[in-house]
Simulated assay, not measured.
Amino acid sequence: MRLLVVCLGNICRSPVAEGVLRARIAASSIAGRVELDSAGTGDWHIGEPPDRRSIANAAGHGVDIAGLRARQIQAADYRRFDWLLCADRANLRDVRARAPKDATAQTALLLDWCGIGEDCEVPDPYTGGPAQFEHVFQLLDRAADGAIARLRQELRRG
């Protein structure tokens, strides 16, 4: 199973989601069976590390995302990944609008896919403070439980 988590700039939400999911999957029975990456719809931060506040918040929870680097979603991602999981509706709309004709990946809101709630979004903490970054981490940590449950089920079927 191959998952790509997508947000706007790939410096706050999607790298935290990647880091949390990577850590939780590595500690689970599905370790080694899931490929995971993150990307942004925008190109402003290509090659940059995650936002320092995201790095610090994740590190405070034992998740190291400092080595990740921002990238923009590419046409090949639509064929390489099984799922493109978007942080919010605007990201989902952009991802769907950019899909090449030969796209095979399915698209969904990340929190919906993880079973957190229908039409739920991960809020962008970029203009906020520590409380917003902590809220995003807690939301994504909770989503990781649902993601692992779903992945176990899909891998069993697969």
Rank of each mutant, 00 (worst) to 15 (best):
I55E: 04
R89D: 05
A131N: 14
G19L: 13
A108D: 14
E121Y: 02
R22I: 02
H135Q: 09
I55Q: 05
G115T: 11
H61V: 04
A23M: 08
G158A: 12
Y126N: 14
D145F: 01
G47S: 14
A23W: 03
P15R: 00
C7Q: 04
D64F: 10
R52E: 15
G128S: 04
E118F: 10
P130V: 13
G19P: 00
H135E: 08
R22G: 03
G60H: 05
S29R: 12
D141E: 11
V20I: 15
L21M: 15
R24A: 11
D51S: 10
G158Q: 06
A90D: 13
D64Q: 09
A17Y: 15
R89T: 10
A90I: 11
A105S: 14
L155W: 12
S29M: 03
C12G: 11
R13H: 09
D51H: 15
R80W: 13
G9R: 01
S29V: 06
K101Q: 09
I116Y: 11
R13I: 01
Y78H: 11
Q132K: 08
Y78W: 13
R71W: 03
R157H: 06
L155T: 12
G32D: 07
N57H: 13
D119T: 11
R142E: 13
L4W: 05
F81M: 00
V20W: 03
T104D: 07
G129Y: 13
G42Y: 01
N57L: 14
R71M: 02
T104V: 07
A66P: 04
W83L: 02
Y126E: 15
P123H: 10
R150M: 04
G128L: 05
V63T: 08
N10C: 02
D77Q: 02
D88T: 04
G115D: 12
G40S: 07
Y78D: 00
Q72M: 05
L36Y: 13
A147N: 08
L84A: 06
D64R: 07
S54P: 12
H45D: 10
A26V: 01
R98D: 01
A87Q: 07
A56Y: 07
L3T: 11
Q72R: 13
D43S: 09
S38R: 01
I46P: 00
L92W: 07
A143I: 08
R98L: 12
R52T: 14
G40Y: 00
R152N: 12
A75D: 14
C120N: 13
H45T: 03
C12V: 09
R13A: 10
G9Y: 00
A75M: 08
A143H: 10
A58D: 12
Q74M: 11
H135S: 05
C86W: 00
A56M: 14
P15I: 00
